[in-house]
C-alpha cells in the first residue's frame, strides 16, 4: 500500500501523489517514512525532501522549515518555503546566509527561542548553499 504524500506551502499545494517512501529533514535528524508509520507530528529543519517511487528516487525538494504530520496512510509536509532542488541558486543562498548572519548579530542572546531560531536560520542557509553549489 502506498503512502499519500502531500507537499504544501502557505501559498499553494505543490505536490500530492502516492509514493513508496519519503525521507524528511526532521529537526532532530532525517526521518524515513514508509506506509504504516506511527502517527507523529514533527518540526522540520532546512534540508531535502527525498521522494522514492517505483523503486527509484525522483526530483527532490528543498524546504527551509516547517512541519510534517505523519499517519499510517499519509505524510503531509507543511513547508514554510519549498523549492525544487534544481531551482536552487547559489547567489540566493549566499544572500540568505548573509542575512541570517546579520540577524544573528542582532538577536537577543538571552532569549533562548530567538537564539535557536537565528541559529536554525544560519544552518538552513548553509545547507541551501551546499546543495546549490553541489
Amino acid at each position: 500500500m502506498p503512502l499519500a504524500l502531500e507537499l504544501i506551502s502557505p501559498e499553494r499545494l505543490l505536490l500530492a501523489k502516492p509514493v513508496e517512501m519519503v525521507v524528511i529533514p526532521a529537526a532532530e535528524g532525517e526521518l524515513g517514512v514508509l506506509p504504516g508509520h506511527a502517527p507523529m507530528i514533527v518540526a522540520l529543519k532546512g534540508g531535502l525532501i527525498r521522494i522514492f517511487e517505483h523503486g527509484q528516487e525522483t526530483a527532490p525538494f528543498f524546504v527551509t522549515s516547517g512541519f510534517a504530520e505523519i499517519t499510517p496512510e499519509r505524510c503531509s509536509i507543511l513547508a514554510t518555503e519549498a523549492i525544487a532542488r534544481e531551482a536552487l541558486k547559489k547567489s540566493e543562498a549566499e544572500a540568505r546566509l548573509a542575512a541570517a548572519k546579520n540577524a544573528w548579530e542582532a538577536v537577543d542572546k538571552n532569549d533562548p527561542f530567538a537564539r535557536d531560531q537565528a541559529m536554525a536560520a544560519i544552518a538552513t542557509a548553509e545547507t541551501m548553499l551546499r546543495l546549490a553549489a553541489g
Binding site: P39, I41, V42, A43, F67, E69
Partner: peptide
Amino acid sequence: RAVYEFEPEEETLLAALLPQ
C-alpha cells in the same frame, strides 16, 4: 483522534507553529 508522537516535545513544536 489519532494519538500522535511529537518531536521535538509539544511546547517547542507549538512555539514554532503558533507564529506560522
